[in-house]
């Protein structure tokens, strides 16, 4: 592992960037997914059409294309706008961090839309009717009956969405985000040891994936405690 000496801190900071992108995109992904699901379940045909368009576009387009489009598209737009005020400006971009974060959140959010929608519809009407019959109002039913049950139904797929997000962060290196894959490329150039460098990146991502998988398993265990027989 001699070749890695001198690069440890770069890989460490690259990992921090991965974690930051992951957390930021996780929040956005949940928001996009919930909005998408709400639109699909709403009575409005226009909202449904827009949400359908959203899921079709982002599930049918390669991730790398979405990232490139968002980054270069926003850069060209921003530059054009900036030049209206100051013709001296040659290039202005949205930072790769945010362009990439929004891109992968939009992509995975389109999958989350279907997950949330399915989970909402998957709650048994029986328990909802029972709660209404007991005199709970719509908000109470939502908080105490729907959400806990939805959460349990959505969790396995949601875990997969989180894994998709963490893995998609690697794609953002293509637009110059200095995460681990970007570090590896520089390290490869400096040391001529691509194999070790990329295996290191793989190991880092495997670590992230493991943490996410274990967390989801723990949450599933907690979320389904009422499904187990007493022991």
């Amino acid at each position: 592992m001699d070749v890695l000496s001198g690069w440890w801190d770069d890989f460490f900071w690259g990992s921090v960037v991965v974690a930051q992108v992951f957390l930021a995109s996780l929040v956005l992904m949940v928001i996009f997914g919930l909005i998408g699901a709400a639109a699909k379940l709403s009575g409005s045909r226009i909202a449904q059409k827009i949400a359908n368009g959203y899921t079709i576009v982002f599930r049918g387009t390669p991730e790398i294309l979405v990232i490139l489009l968002l980054y270069f598209g926003s850069a060209i737009t921003l530059t054009a706008i900036a030049q209206l005020f100051n013709p001296e400006i040659k290039f202005l971009d949205v930072p790769p961090f945010w362009a990439g974060t929004i891109a992968i959140a939009l992509i995975v959010g389109s999958y989350a839309t279907e997950t949330f929608r399915g989970a909402f519809l998957g709650v048994k009407p029986g328990s909802i009717e029972a709660a209404h019959a007991l005199g709970m109002n719509t908000l109470q039913v939502f908080i105490y009956v729907r959400v806990p049950e939805m959460w349990r139904l959505a969790l396995p797929a949601f875990g997969n969405h989180m894994l998709s997000l963490i893995k998609d962060t690697a794609l953002i290196s293509i637009i110059g985000l200095n995460e681990t894959l970007f570090v590896a490329k520089q390290a490869m150039g400096a040391t001529g040891e691509p194999f070790v460098m990329y295996i290191t990146v793989g190991a880092i991502y495997l670590g992230f994936s493991t943490v996410i998988t274990l967390s989801v398993m723990a949450l599933e265990h907690f979320g389904s405690r009422h499904m187990r027989a007493e022991t």
Binding site: L181, F195, Y198, I199, G202, L206, T213
Partner: peptide, 22 residues
């Protein structure tokens, strides 16, 4: 576990840049 836990792009780079080194 390994192939589902790592990004496809990293796998591509390991094969393309890494393997020829071996």
């Amino acid at each position: 576990y390994v192939f589902r836990g790592t990004p496809i792009l990293v796998q591509i780079f390991i094969v393309y840049y890494g393997f020829p080194q071996l």
